[in-house]
Amino acid sequence: MEKPVQIHDFSEVTKFHGHSCPGIAIGYRVGEIALRELSSRAEDEEMVAIVENDSCSVDAIQFVTGCTLGKGNLIFKDHGKHVYTFLNRDTGKALRIYLKKSTDEMDPEFAEARKKVFSDSATHEDLEKYEKTRNKATEKILEAPVQELFAVEWVDAEFPEEARIFRSVRCAKCGELVSEHRTRVENGQMVCIPCFHEYSRS
């Protein structure tokens, strides 16, 4: 019989992230689903997470699932979408999770309070209301049924190559070390991306 995967308490995730908010709650719930459905936490690279945004939710996903940028099993695609795909290398299964509604749609009161607090005329009372509605919106996400928040489906996905370690070379311009596979060739020399002078006629 498979041993159930241990899921971190939400308070541990907020401590890691720095605060509690709807975004971190979304990531926490996504991570819970991934662990439950794939029956695995990434101790190494057996699980891969592909995230399509760089919001607060990604911190929770890293903490809960063990998929991290440093291990090479967290892949960021800058699509600006609350879409999360998890792949289990051991089983070959892939799970895609999509947030059905924005936090504004889920809680219009929180959306209005956030709009006020980030305006130039925000008062102390506006800040207090924002914090109160933020906490309420976060709790709502933590307690809502999965099917109300997310579309969850098994998908066919191409598994990415496992992370590789590349040698470092010195940039011919600044002299700093750069991973060989991220260099550019300029006038026959290897340079880092910030030093590279891109040519374009557009």
Rank of each mutant, 00 (worst) to 15 (best):
T68A: 12
L95R: 10
K100W: 06
S102D: 04
D78I: 06
Y98N: 09
Y84I: 03
S102E: 06
A94R: 02
G66V: 13
H82Q: 01
Y98C: 03
K71F: 10
K100H: 06
I75R: 12
T68N: 07
C67V: 09
A94N: 10
H82I: 01
L87I: 15
R89D: 10
L74T: 09
H82F: 15
R89W: 07
D90Y: 04
A94M: 04
E105K: 08
F86S: 01
K93S: 10
V83G: 02
D78L: 03
F86M: 03
D104R: 06
L95D: 10
A94K: 01
T91P: 00
F86A: 05
G80D: 05
K81I: 09
T91Y: 05
I75A: 09
K101C: 01
L99Y: 01
I97E: 01
Y84D: 00
F86K: 00
G92K: 07
F76N: 07
Y98V: 15
E105D: 02
G70S: 15
C67E: 08
I75V: 15
K71N: 03
T103F: 02
F86I: 00
K77G: 00
T68Q: 03
T85D: 04
K101T: 00
Y84H: 13
T103D: 00
L69P: 03
K100P: 05
L95W: 09
K71P: 10
G92W: 15
L99F: 00
G80V: 10
G70V: 11
V83Y: 05
V83T: 13
N88M: 08
G70M: 15
G92R: 13
L87H: 04
N73T: 14
G66M: 08
N88C: 05
N73S: 06
G80E: 10
